[in-house]
Structures are given as structure tokens and as C-alpha cells.
Design a protein around this nucleic acid. Structure first.
Lengths: 144, 144
DNA sequence: AAAATATAGTTGGTTTTGTAACTAACAAGG
DNA sequence: CCTTGTTAGTTACAAAACCAACTATATTTT
């Protein structure tokens, strides 16, 4: 009919990204959800605290690009699970430093290695150069 | 400390996929949300009906990989907006055929070309071969 | 044909998210 | 100081997603 008549949703990058994201995220949630009763945002906040050390909620927001209300709720949940502690700063009592407990640290280590294995498995069929292109493109698309 | 100590969330494909997906989906929603007051699921259902012709809700679920409850609600919303009609089948009255109205078809055409332009823009900085790799990888990852 | 099973789609109640308004603490200018 | 503005984080309410149970119709089994 028109020159567009066979344009396919599978040519639409946001759609492909969404499907790939859903599929892989759902597959990985067995580790943090089934294993530790965590939500996706909680696992991400935990990861950032484990990976980059004690920091403020604000830093987590910036690095992980998660909205502050989501971070706030995830922090409360992680605190209730005793995976992190908050401590007020003397200098500026608006800030609170977030720090993993030993228990939170051990969960982090477990999930980090699960994530690494999962990712290796996920990309097993791709060549090194394909992996590099994929990562580069995704980083670029996430920036916008 | 350990050989894993610098494993980064930016090396974790599901995380990258999620960020790229969120960023691009949010950017595109201006077209269907601001333009036509549609939700993401509604736009996808509309697209599938436009692209693959009249079909049952079940077919939309399968092709678009959207859960039937979400499809059911999207169909109701699209019906209220007069973008589609349902018709019962004689043979099996459990099925209802979903079909875009002329109005729905014109919205579809508009959004389809917006999507095409958007996608072209999105991938403008990548080479042809990078685009091919990206699409192939995403399709593969979405399959799992 | 009656009973059990399966399928298409809907509804209801709970969770989770999103948005905006809010509190509390600090900073800077007058 | 005291107003004005800014920043960190929380809360409230509305929108959306999730899950499980449900209705209605069709199919299979006995």
C-alpha cells in the first residue's frame, strides 16, 4: 500500500529494548526476589552500596539513575531487612550515610557473583566484538 | 580483595538493557501519550492490530508478549477511544475479533511514521553494521 | 449426555510506581 | 537575625501493574 506498510515493531529499537530488558530482568529476579525477597530497585541500591561503598541516597540516585522516591523506599526496605544502616552526618544533618551491614555485604557478594555468571551465560553465544558493540550501543542509548 | 571486586553494574547486561529501554521508551511516549492520551500497552496493541490486521486478543498476547490482563484493559481503553471495534465470532463465542476503526487506523499510521523517524534518529550515530549487531543481539536476548 | 477439563477474556484486591507536595536543615543576602 | 532560596529525603494520593480468582463458552472423557 504505502512505502511504510511493512514497518515492523521488531524494527523499532525501543520495543526491542523493552522486550530484551523484560526477558532478562525477569530471569534474573529469581536471585534477588526468590533468594532474598528483594525488589528490583532494592537489589540495585544494594549493588551500588556494595560496589561503590558507603554513600548518600543522592549519590545512589545519580549513579543508578533512580528517582529519589524509589531510592527512599528501597532504603527503608533494606534497612528493615537489616542489610544497611543509616547514620546522620554531624556537619549537615540533612544527609544520611548509607552503609551495608555485614549481612548486607554478604548478600551483595552472593548476588554480584550470581550476576556475573548470569551475564556470562547470557552473552555466551555472542562474539567478543558483538558484546563490545552491544555494550557500547546500550550505554549510548541509555544516555539520551 | 577478590577477583570480582571491580565488577560493575555497567557490565551487567540486564541493567544496561533496562536503562536503555527506559530512556528510549520515555522519550517516545510523547507521541502516543501527549498526542493521543494512550498508555504504552495501548500503543503496542494498536500497533499490532495495525501491522498484523484484525486478530484476537490472544494473538496480540502471543505476538507482543503482553499478559492477557494488560491486553484486556488496553482493548477496553482503545474501544472507548473508538480506535477499535470488537466482534464476536459465530463459531466460538469466546473469541472476539479486534479490528481498528478508520480513526484507529489513521492514528496507527501517524504513530508508525513517528516511530520510524524516531528510530532513525536514535540510531543515527551508529554504523550499519553496528545497527545490525544491535538488532540481532536484542532479538536473541528477548527470546530466552 | 453429564462431568471434568481447557480456553478466552474479565474483574477485584493488593503491590508498586509516579507525581507533587511536604518537612527539615542549611546557605546567602539584605 | 530574618527572609528567600536550595537541597536531602519523606509522605500522600493517584495511576498503573500484578496476581489470583472468576465467568462464560467450548472440548474431551467416561
Amino acid at each position: 500500500m504505502t512505502i511504510f506498510s511493512d514497518y515492523n515493531l521488531e524494527d523499532f529499537t525501543p520495543y526491542l529494548l523493552n522486550m530484551a530488558s523484560e526477558t532478562t530482568s525477569l530471569a534474573f529476579q529469581q536471585y534477588y526476589k526468590d533468594g532474598y525477597g528483594m525488589l528490583r530497585t532494592e537489589w540495585r541500591v544494594l549493588f551500588h552500596l556494595g560496589r561503590y561503598g558507603p554513600q548518600h541516597a543522592k549519590d545512589v540516585c545519580r549513579r543508578a539513575r533512580i528517582h529519589k522516591t524509589k531510592v527512599s523506599r528501597a532504603v527503608s526496605a533494606l534497612e528493615q531487612k537489616r542489610y544497611l544502616r543509616r547514620s546522620e552526618e554531624e556537619r549537615d544533618r540533612r544527609h544520611e550515610l548509607l552503609k551495608l551491614t555485614p549481612s548486607g555485604t554478604s548478600v551483595f557478594k552472593d548476588l554480584r557473583s550470581a550476576a556475573q555468571r548470569f551475564d556470562t551465560e547470557l552473552l555466551a553465544d555472542f562474539t567478543t566484538s558483538e558484546r563490545a558493540v552491544l555494550q557500547r550501543c546500550l550505554l549510548r542509548l541509555a544516555e539520551l
